[in-house]
Design a protein around this nucleic acid. Structure first.
Length: 773
DNA sequence: CCACAACCTTTTTTT
DNA sequence: AAGGTTGTGG
């Protein structure tokens, strides 16, 4: 083992070697937090503590894996792999599977992801005869999630006056009923959602002191990373487990708490002193990551927070350049400016593409940047968004696996009963679901009893189709316990007809689906091989245990190549880059669905988010925003200066916004974004007649400038037209999408107004002059 | 009763 | 991009 203690500063060293009792490590951004945690664990192991007596909880799989790797390099994989190290959800799902019998769940319980939960809530809403326009499944799920994170059961929720008042005010008074029914249905399906993993762990520990005692004795040392992001449910689990030994070390930074939307309580870290009176504090205040300017700018921002623990983050690195502020007219222009900066900076400093990161608040914001980077031939990789395991084609296959493992998993049943199509439609499924709801059993139980289906009003032909399906699943169920994962997965994929379904359609979209499916099968093969080598069980069931808890960041296959990184600020936590762009600042100020003024706590969270984003950067940061954004096709004017104004201006280098060629204002937008050019129009209907296509083209030609390349849509009841242009920098794009509606043959076309006509002519000229070059 | 096509709507952040 | 909705046709 290397002499790690010498590589640490005194505060870090103290935090590593004082392993007994309660420790609170306040770790500013970039202060070597992960190193302290890693070495502390290594130190414990060196002192002779069994790895299986150490519990280390993190927030992301990535953080857990990284730490594991670093510890493995200190003490060897054979020791490190016995550590209890992982996310709260991963660790406690493991414990819940081990104790499943005690709490009335099958060992093979399914973990419902957000999509499953929403879909279930939707059917609950329907079964209670409520409108899903008023009771929006997403909103209801959020409320239920908040309740669960605060350990409020459906009954407590129902009795809680405050809760009911809030629901009344939001005009969703029957939320508590939905919560109750949702809980019942999850239980019936042998399923837990993400929040249940923590909630039910708490229930388990509360109701079964013997089991709690067992784990209290198992975990002699407990470490928690990102403690400021724990919610009440997580906090209580940790508190219970640490009760006897009190050997607990939490690491966190109140200034980096950015998960309050998920129930994170900053109080947990602020109140640590009350929970563990004999605690010791270690403050890691030296930032090794960023330049002084970046650290100071971040501090000037965070200083405005009302509640905080006293600490002074400082850097002894070079002073560094001021932070550049870029102003763009709209999001396309913003992408263009960022791409330019990357190019310039690369030339100047010989930076690699992988030295750059573009951070934004929401995944949807990546689109514009992807577009421009593609056009400029800048390689990029994108984290987040739809995780691999959430893609439709992957979820379809996984649903087969899930249903085979746990036949009560209704969400999977609903997903695959008619995929690939076997002539079972919505009506049939509704009847099945209703019947299951009435008798309080799973859909599977109805679908495997012909008598029950007859009772549900299904006819013999449909029952036969359903039986073919259930028999297929049953056949797999009989095999899967004794068959190795890869072989089983292959069998299911081909015999269910999924593979041939995907194979038949050769569209590019489908091709990627096919490839993704193959990739999943490869991953399962890798799992099988690894399991065999290490002598672990190699069944599909084991593979499936953690899949619901995996996220996109766990796909590192293209990790080492030289690419610009695009991701949300949230997922950038724990990473660092030489150069960071924080873009779409106007959207940070005005998150979607937001209206009115920010509350103080919302504002604080936004500040922290921004602080985290800033300190990701080693030496250069850019802040950029668009003054005008196009949302729902309408321009939206933003005032991001309010937020940037909170940073001390001495750290900022506000660039003069460059003169932007006129046309870029009217940039090549997609169909949706052009809607602001449309006027109100009378709606007419037009019978679906293919012979109109020629006429539409004629009309288009008469309206559009000569020399342009018109397009018309084949929509049945309206005429849509516009033209394509080619531009050297932006490539081919649709310029205008004018929509008009016609009553049968008398074409009443929506003509562009004068301004729009000019615009069209301008683009027509542009095309011609570009070609002339 | 179901399949398929076309169109519309919606899109915080993570486990 | 994916789900929801509507309309057509089998």
């Amino acid at each position: 083992m290397s002499n790690y203690l010498e590589s640490l500063n005194s505060a870090q060293r103290e935090a590593v070697i004082n392993t007994e009792g309660a420790s609170l490590v306040i770790a500013g951004a970039g202060s070597g937090k992960t190193r302290v945690l890693t070495y502390r664990i290594a130190h414990l192991l060196k002192k002779g503590i069994e790895p299986s007596a150490i519990l280390a909880l993190t927030f992301t799989n990535k953080a857990a894996r990284e730490m594991k790797e670093r510890i493995a390099s200190e003490v060897g994989n054979n020791v490190s792999r016995h550590l209890w190290m992982g996310t709260f959800h991963a660790i406690f799902s493991r414990i819940l599977r081990a104790e499943a019998a005690t709490i009335g769940y099958p060992t093979t319980f399914t973990i419902y992801d957000t999509q499953d939960s929403k879909s279930l809530i939707k059917s609950v809403i329907k079964s209670l005869n409520l409108e899903d326009a008023t009771y929006k499944p997403g909103v209801i799920l959020n409320r239920i999630s908040t309740a669960k994170n605060n350990l409020i059961t459906p009954v407590a929720y129902h009795q809680n006056a405050q809760q009911r008042e809030a629901d009344q005010a939001a005009r969703i008074p029957r939320t508590s009923e939905i919560y109750l029914e949702y809980t019942k249905r999850c239980k019936n399906a042998g399923a837990m959602d993400f929040d249940d993993l923590l909630l039910i762990t708490n229930i388990l520990f509360k109701n079964h002191p013997d089991i709690l005692a067992k784990y209290q004795q198992t975990f002699l040392y407990i470490l928690v990373d990102e403690y400021q992001d724990t919610n009440f449910s997580q906090y209580l689990i940790v508190k219970r487990l640490a009760e006897t030994h009190q050997n607990i070390c939490v690491v966190g930074d109140d200034a980096q708490s950015i998960y309050s939307f998920r129930g994170a309580r900053i109080e947990n870290i602020l109140n640590f002193k009350n929970d563990y009176p004999g605690f010791a504090t270690y403050k890691l205040e030296q930032n090794y990551r960023s330049t002084q300017v970046i650290v100071d700018a971040a501090n000037s921002l965070i200083a405005k927070n009302k509640h905080q623990l006293q600490k002074t983050v400082f850097s002894e690195n070079a002073k560094g350049e001021r932070i550049k502020v870029l102003t763009a007219t709209n999001e396309h222009d913003e992408g263009y400016l960022v791409a330019n900066e990357i190019f310039d900076h690369r030339m100047q400093d010989h930076d690699n593409f992988s030295d750059f990161a573009i951070l934004y608040r929401t995944n949807a914001q990546s689109r514009v940047f992807e577009e421009i980077l593609r056009k400029r031939n800048i390689p990029y990789k994108i984290y987040g968004g739809l995780s691999f395991y959430q893609r439709k084609e992957i979820k379809d296959i996984l649903s087969y696996f899930r249903l085979i493992i746990n036949s009560k998993d209704d969400e999977s049943f609903k997903r695959i009963i008619n995929y690939p199509a076997r002539g079972i439609g919505a009506t049939t499924l509704n009847k099945l679901e209703d019947a299951a709801g009435i008798s309080g059993c799973s859909i599977w139980e109805v679908a495997t009893y012909p008598e029950k289906m007859l009772l549900a009003g299904l006819n013999v032909g449909v029952i036969k189709k359903i039986s073919v399906f259930t028999q297929l699943i049953s056949k797999f169920s009989n095999q899967f316990a004794t068959t190795e994962a890869y072989e089983m997965a292959n069998k299911i994929a081909s015999e269910s007809g999924i593979l041939s379904e995907l194979y038949q359609d050769k569209s590019p979209e489908n091709l990627s689906r096919y490839e993704n499916t193959q990739e999943l099968l490869n991953a399962i093969q890798d799992f099988s091989i690894a399991a065999k080598e290490e002598g672990r069980p190699d069944g599909l069931q084991i593979f499936m245990e953690d899949v619901a808890l995996l996220t996109d960041q766990d796909n590192d296959k293209e990790g080492d190549t030289d690419k610009v990184t695009l991701m949300t600020v949230h997922s950038s936590k724990g990473l660092e880059f030489k150069n960071v762009f924080i873009v779409g600042l106007e959207e940070n100020l005005f998150p979607s669905g937001f209206s009115g003024t920010l509350t103080l706590s919302e504002l604080e969270e936004e500040r922290r988010l921004f602080y985290v984003a800033l300190t990701r950067s080693e030496n250069q940061a850019w802040l950029s925003f668009a003054q005008q954004r196009f949302r729902w096709g309408k321009p939206e004017f933003c005032n991001p200066s309010r937020f940037i104004g909170e940073i001390d201006h001495q750290f900022l280098d506000v660039q003069n916004s460059r003169s932007i060629p006129q046309f870029r204002n009217q940039e090549l937008r997609d169909d949706n974004s052009n809607r602001h050019l449309q006027r109100d129009e009378t709606k007419y209907t037009l019978p679906r007649r293919p012979e109109l296509q020629g006429q539409r083209m004629q009309i288009a030609k008469s309206v559009l400038p000569s020399g342009s390349e018109p397009f018309v849509s084949d929509s049945p009841d309206k005429i849509k037209l516009g033209m394509f242009v080619e531009h050297e920098r932006f490539g081919r794009g649709k310029v205008l999408n004018i929509e008009g509606k016609m009553p049968d043959m008398k074409a009443k076309v929506f003509f562009p107004n004068a301004g729009e006509k000019n615009l069209l002519l301008k683009f027509a000229k542009l095309k011609i002059s570009d070609q002339a070059e």
